[in-house]
Computed example of a mutant assay.
Amino acid sequence: MKRREFIAATAALLVSRRRSWAQGARRRLGFLAIGDGSGRALNQAERVFVDTLRSLGWGEGKNLVIEYRFSQPPDRLPASVADLVALNPDVLVAPGPQAAMALKSATATIPIVFVGVADPVQLGLVQGLSRPGGNITGLSTMVPDDFLAKRLEILRELVPGASKIALLVNPDNPMQRHYLAEEIPSMARRLGIVLLIVGATRAEELDAAFASAAAQHANAIIDFGDPLTYVEAPRIIALAAKYHLPAMYLFRHYANGGLSVYGAEAGDLMRRAGGYVDKILKGTKPSELPVERPTKFELVINMKTAKALGLTVSPSLLVRADEVIE
């Protein structure tokens, strides 16, 4: 092909692509959520993600197709990952460490944006926060201070004298496995308390986890924070009430009946993830986007639940709360 013909052909291709975009050419997004595997709807924070994309000009069903897979590991996760990767989407979105690790193991080429991973460096998802490298980046929940210790401190203010606290964990969560092995024993010794580990990998195991905490005479319980427990918030709140266990949760929607919440604002993380997806769809490489930490935290106390548990909340704690539910 002569040089002039090559230039003309290239220009025609560019014009064709511009016309395609103008006519609403669709990009494809793969969204892998770890939930109950029943094809549930998006949760509140995940809806913020979709709303953010819409505000940035990406309309689902217009110029964007979102392929959702809701999977409960370990049964359905491999099939869900294989389904999404086979579609060869422009971007993959992974809320939580299980989804992020599963997608990273499945593809080294499709861009991945994770949300809500405590320590992506420790898990091997990225090389570093400022220079993630590879095809993956996203939003971490890691903070400089010892965040779990801070949550325990607030819970012990709510329940003075609590010396035995249960931690509700998901053993399938790789980040939690790290904490259980490396951090929890030394933290318990440092704080002078007993930390009881109660686990659930499925919704139907939650009842047994709370029964175990009660049987071991726990004074209170902390939901470590996991996609499974996020989805099952109403069930967990009801179990805490059933066993009369003061509880500390990680996300705002638990405050609807839950005693206390302290954690990063999930909706803000998903909003920022939407911004990352927008940049990648417009040509930015994941390796060029540093992993960002949370910037918004909230402490919420439900006084109605506190009274039902016979707790007196100190004025100093009420002053520090971002919201007090009467």
Score class of each variant (00 low, 15 high):
1 M>P: 10
2 K>D: 15
5 E>L: 14
13 L>M: 09
14 L>W: 11
15 V>M: 14
19 R>L: 14
19 R>V: 11
30 G>I: 05
38 S>T: 11
43 N>Y: 06
46 E>F: 07
50 V>F: 09
50 V>E: 09
54 R>I: 10
58 W>Q: 13
60 E>M: 07
60 E>D: 06
64 L>E: 05
68 Y>Q: 00
72 Q>V: 10
73 P>S: 00
74 P>E: 12
79 A>D: 15
80 S>K: 14
90 D>G: 08
91 V>Y: 04
92 L>S: 00
94 A>Y: 13
101 M>R: 01
102 A>H: 01
105 S>T: 12
108 A>C: 04
110 I>A: 01
115 V>K: 04
115 V>L: 05
121 V>I: 09
125 L>V: 07
132 P>R: 03
135 N>H: 06
139 L>K: 15
140 S>C: 03
145 D>W: 15
147 F>H: 04
156 R>T: 08
157 E>P: 13
161 G>A: 07
170 N>I: 10
175 M>P: 07
176 Q>G: 00
185 P>T: 03
186 S>L: 15
188 A>N: 07
190 R>Y: 04
191 L>F: 00
192 G>P: 06
198 V>R: 02
199 G>Q: 13
202 R>G: 08
205 E>V: 03
217 H>N: 15
227 P>H: 08
232 E>K: 14
234 P>N: 08
238 A>G: 01
243 Y>T: 05
243 Y>C: 01
244 H>Y: 02
247 A>Q: 13
248 M>I: 06
249 Y>P: 07
252 R>K: 15
253 H>P: 12
255 A>Q: 02
257 G>I: 01
260 S>G: 01
265 E>V: 14
267 G>D: 14
267 G>V: 07
281 L>V: 07
285 K>A: 08
288 E>S: 15
291 V>D: 03
296 K>I: 03
296 K>W: 06
300 V>E: 11
301 I>S: 03
301 I>Q: 01
302 N>I: 01
303 M>V: 01
305 T>P: 04
306 A>C: 10
306 A>V: 11
307 K>N: 15
311 L>P: 10
314 S>Y: 10
320 R>K: 13
321 A>N: 10
